[in-house]
């Protein structure tokens, strides 16, 4: 086994996914099969190979620090599931 049900539960907590018991079962089997497949990468010797994180060679992209209009509070809040005045409303954070 490449991955256990307990590891799936741990990863789900990290990913903030409240998976159902059935989802955990299904994902354990599917992730196990996929991880067994990607193991083929270990056939390749990559000692001394530089990792590629970006396909096009690029320096930092700087721009002038100039003031531009922003979308404004009402636009920013227009899609909020819940709001109070000019704030996003969330459940109690600190018990």
């Amino acid at each position: 086994m490449k991955i256990t049900r307990e590891e799936v539960e741990h990863v789900a907590r990290l990913a903030r996914l409240a998976l159902t018991e059935e989802e955990k079962d299904t994902l354990t089997g599917q992730m196990d099969a996929i991880l067994a497949y990607v193991d083929k990468l270990n056939e390749l010797n990559t000692d001394g190979v530089v990792a590629t994180s970006h396909a096009v060679p690029m320096e930092n992209a700087f721009r002038e620090d100039v003031v531009r209009p922003s979308i404004g509070i009402d636009n920013a809040l227009a899609n909020a599931p819940a709001r109070v005045e000019s704030f996003f409303r969330v459940p109690k954070v600190i018990e």
């Binding site: 990863v11 903030r16 409240a18 989802e23």
Partner: peptide
Amino acid sequence: GLMEMMSKSRDEGFGQEVKRRIMLGTY
């Protein structure tokens, strides 16, 4: 709580393929 709200919102809002890829990537 906040954590439960986020985790349930994500579980309800995402489909199976998306959850599978989030899980693989997080792993």
